[in-house]
Computed example of a mutant assay.
Amino acid sequence: MSATISAHLARPGRPAVVARALAELTGPTRGIVELPVRLMWNSERAFDLDDPDDLLWMYENVLRETNRIEDLRELIDGRTLHRVWRRLNLPRGVRLAWESRHRDLRTA
C-alpha cells in the first residue's frame, strides 16, 4: 500500500489519508474533472482545473474527504499540490498529516 493512514483526523472519525510520495500523484492538471459523490455531495461536482479557484476547491475536497489512496492518485497531481499547498484551506489534521509525511510542503 502506498498511503499512510494518519493519526491526524481529516474530520471527526476520519483519519487523513496521505500518499507516501508526491510523485505517485499523477492526476489531471487541466480540463474538467467531476468528483464522485463520495467526495462531493453537492450536485455541482465538476471542476475546471484551468480556473485557479476551482482547482483549489477540488483539491481541498479530495484531501479532506478521501479515505482511498486511489482517489489521491487519480485526482491530485503532486507537482500541482506542492505549488498550491499554502493556498489550500484545509482542516488542521489534514495539513499536519501531509506536512508530517512531506516536510517540503511546510516551506512550499
Rank of each mutant, 00 (worst) to 15 (best):
T107H: 13
S2Y: 00
A7V: 13
E74F: 00
W98N: 02
I5N: 05
P36T: 14
H8Q: 03
A108I: 08
M40E: 12
E70S: 00
R73D: 09
R68K: 03
P12M: 04
H82Y: 12
L96M: 14
R83A: 08
S43K: 08
L55N: 06
S100R: 04
M1F: 00
D51L: 05
T26M: 01
G31A: 06
A3G: 07
W41F: 14
T26V: 06
I32G: 02
E60I: 07
P52H: 12
T4Y: 04
A97H: 03
E24Q: 09
H8V: 02
A108T: 00
P15K: 11
A10G: 09
S2A: 00
R87K: 11
R14H: 12
R79I: 01
A19W: 09
H82V: 01
L49P: 01
S43C: 12
S43L: 06
L90M: 13
R64A: 10
N42K: 09
D53M: 02
A10V: 07
R45W: 07
R79M: 08
V37F: 09
R106P: 00
N61T: 13
L49V: 06
I69W: 04
P91C: 15
L96C: 12
L81E: 13
D50M: 07
H102F: 05
H102A: 14
L25T: 11
I5F: 03
H8F: 11
R106D: 01
E65C: 13
R86L: 13
R64K: 15
G93V: 08
D77W: 04
W57P: 05
N42H: 08
P12V: 06
H8Y: 09
H8S: 11
A3L: 03
R38E: 09
D54S: 11
L88S: 06
A19K: 13
E99Q: 03
S2M: 02
G78I: 03
V17S: 03
G27L: 09
S2W: 03
D48W: 02
L35D: 08
M1Q: 06
L9V: 15
R20W: 03
R11C: 06
T26P: 01
L55C: 15
I76E: 12
S43Q: 08
R87E: 11
A3D: 04
E74Q: 05
